[in-house]
Computed example of a mutant assay.
Amino acid sequence: MTYTPRAVAGMLGIAPTTLRTWDQRYGLGPSKRTEGGHRRYDEADVEVLRRMVALTGQGVAAASAAVLARQEPPARAHSPISAAEAIQARRGFLAAAKRLDEPLMLGLAAKLLTDHGVVSVWESVFVPCLVELGELTAVRGLGVEIEHLASGSVLQALRDVPRAVGPGVLAALLSCAPEEQHVLALEALGAALSEEGCQWRSLGARVPAEALCDAVTRLRPSVVLVWAHRADLAELVPLDELGALPGSLLAVAGPGWIGLPLPPGVRRPASLADAVELVLDRVRL
Rank of each mutant, 00 (worst) to 15 (best):
T2W: 15
Y3L: 14
P5L: 09
R6Y: 04
M11K: 09
I14G: 03
I14F: 10
I14V: 14
W22R: 00
W22E: 07
Q24D: 13
R25A: 01
R25I: 00
R25Q: 03
Y26R: 01
G29N: 07
K32P: 01
R33E: 12
T34H: 15
G37E: 05
H38E: 15
R39N: 09
R40P: 13
E43D: 14
A44W: 02
E47R: 14
R51N: 04
A54H: 07
A54K: 05
L55T: 05
L55A: 07
G57M: 06
Q58T: 13
G59K: 09
V60L: 13
A63I: 03
A63F: 00
S64Y: 04
A65P: 04
A65Q: 06
V67W: 02
L68Q: 11
A69R: 06
E72F: 08
P73E: 01
P73F: 03
P74H: 05
A75G: 03
H78Y: 01
S79R: 14
P80H: 03
I81S: 07
E85Y: 04
R91M: 14
F93R: 09
L94S: 13
A95M: 08
A95K: 12
K98N: 10
K98S: 10
L100K: 02
D101W: 04
D101A: 11
M105P: 01
A109L: 07
A110T: 15
K111F: 08
L112S: 11
H116K: 05
G117E: 05
S120R: 13
E123I: 03
E123L: 11
S124E: 15
F126I: 09
P128W: 02
I146N: 00
H148A: 08
A150E: 12
G152A: 07
G152M: 06
V154N: 13
A157M: 11
D160F: 06
A164Y: 01
A164P: 06
A171N: 00
A172H: 03
E179M: 03
H182M: 00
L184F: 08
E187P: 08
A191W: 11
S194M: 08
E196T: 10
G197R: 04
G197V: 07
C198R: 13
W200K: 10
R201L: 15
S202K: 13
E210V: 14
D214G: 05
V216L: 05
T217H: 11
T217C: 05
R218T: 08
V226C: 07
W227R: 13
W227E: 14
H229T: 11
R230I: 07
A234F: 03
P238Y: 02
L239H: 04
E241D: 12
A244T: 01
P246Y: 00
L249S: 02
L250M: 06
W257D: 10
W257T: 12
L260S: 04
P261S: 04
P264S: 12
P264I: 06
G265M: 06
R267N: 03
P269D: 07
S271F: 09
L272E: 06
L272W: 02
A273E: 10
V276G: 00
V279S: 02
L280S: 04
L280M: 12
L285Y: 07
